[in-house]
Amino acid sequence: MDLQNQQRIKDVAEKNNAEDIIVILGASDAEGAGIYAETVTAGDPTYAGPLAGVPLGLPVYHILDPLLKAEADPKAWEEQISMMEMVLDGEGLTTSVAEMREQNGKSVL
């Protein structure tokens, strides 16, 4: 996760209650999604960014997680997400993020 996005998430986490925050990822590959999920739960694994050594433990989900799809406006989903849903490995992405969330997260939906 780039340094700027790490800083944005850190700032949001500091200014709000943790239970009011959810991180939604749109990464296209499972390995990358897992690293992003690790960054916002256990901290930046590359120790290069503002979240190095900062275990926020935020609830993190991939946008293709069926839990989130159930919450989405079907019309907006059709307009914005349905094409990528056909292209990406939704199950692999959901699982990769879920593993990190369950290992390091402090709260879930």
Partner: peptide, 8 residues
């Protein structure tokens, strides 16, 4: 819009 769908 910025979604891949909108761009494509």
């Amino acid at each position: 819009g910025a979604s891949p769908q909108a761009v494509t």
